[in-house]
Amino acid sequence: MSHHQLDARRMLCPMPVIRTQNFVAKLPAGDTVDVLCTDPGALHDIPAWCRIHGHEIIGTQEQDGELMISVRVGINAD
């Protein structure tokens, strides 16, 4: 199981979601990804996208206007 980082800073929604979607599609279940972003909309959209596709949000952090959303890839990744 590996841990990854995805940089989606300065991108506006839905780009961070699209990046997360395309990145996660290549990963096996159980891997984790920290998505870095600056658009506050991602705090809403990435978790919504995860719920729909069966992935899990394992944490979110905010520091100096930067967000880190941690995702654990689910079994039905596609």
Binding site: L12, C13, P14, V17, D39, P40, G41, H44, D45, A48, W49, R51, I52
Partner: peptide, 25 residues
């Protein structure tokens, strides 16, 4: 979608949901 809301501070209070994701859910 939420862009301009996300950019403009005065719109911070508005929901920034992505409509398509919301509908799908």
């Amino acid at each position: 979608e939420g862009h301009t809301h996300a950019i403009r501070k005065k719109d911070k209070a508005k929901p920034k949901r992505n409509n398509a994701l919301w509908v799908a859910e």
